[in-house]
Amino acid sequence: MIAFNDVTKRYPGGHEALKHVSFKLPAGEMAFLTGHSGAGKSTLLKLIVVIERATQGQVVVNEQNLTRLPRRKLPRFRRQIGVVFQDHKLLPEQTVFENVALPLVVSGYSPKDTPRRVRAALDKVGLLGKEAMFPLMLSGGEQQRVGIARAVVTRPSILLADEPTGNVDAAMSDDIMDLFRLFNQVGTTVLVATHELRHIERLGKPVLCLDDGYLVDRPADQWID
C-alpha cells in the first residue's frame, strides 16, 4: 500500500515539485502516474523510494511512515520495492546474470538459490540464455527487461517504474507494459510513471495525473482517505 497525505516537496532554492498531493494506492493494485515533463512524476517516485523526503505531509508505504524512517532502516525498507528506471541503471562491467543477482546478494540470499531465482526472473522477461552477456551487448529493450528482471528477482511487494518505455519501440513497449500487468496479477502493487496515453488506454488501469505538482486527476474515491 502506498499513501500520500497532503504531501509537498520543496527543493532547495524554493521550487515546489509536489503540492499538497494526497492519494492511496491499495496493496495489489496497479496504477499509472502521468503528466507532462516536469509535472512531478519522478519526484513522487523518489519520495516512495526515499531518495527524497517530503517537506510537508506524510508518505506511508507498507505501513511505514517514511517521513520518520531513520537512515539506518532505509536499506531494509528499499528491499521491499523493485524499481525500474528509464535509463536502466545496469552495471556495464557485470554480466546480465550478475546484474539480476545483485539484489539477492545485497539482501543476503543463499548463493545456492541465486542461479535458480535469477533464471526464473530472466525467464519471465524472455531473456533466458543471455545470462553471460554484458548489458552493452544487448538492445535498449533487452536492457530494460534486464532492469525489470533485477527489480522483480526478490519478489518485492511494490514495483515502481519511471518511464520504462521511454527508449524502446512500440512493440517492445507493449511487451514491457504487459510484463507489469503480469506482475500485478500475481499480487504485486505496481505504479508506472509514463506519459504514453496509449498504454493507459490499452491496459485500462487507474491513473494519477500530475500537473505542475498538483494531483489533478485521481482514481476512484475509495482510494482517497
Partner: peptide
C-alpha cells in the same frame, strides 16, 4: 559511484 548508487537503491547497506 554509479555502482554504489545502484546498490543503495536496491537496499544495500553501508556495511555491504
Amino acid at each position: 559511484t554509479h555502482e554504489i548508487e545502484v546498490i543503495k537503491l536496491i537496499g544495500g547497506t553501508d556495511r555491504f
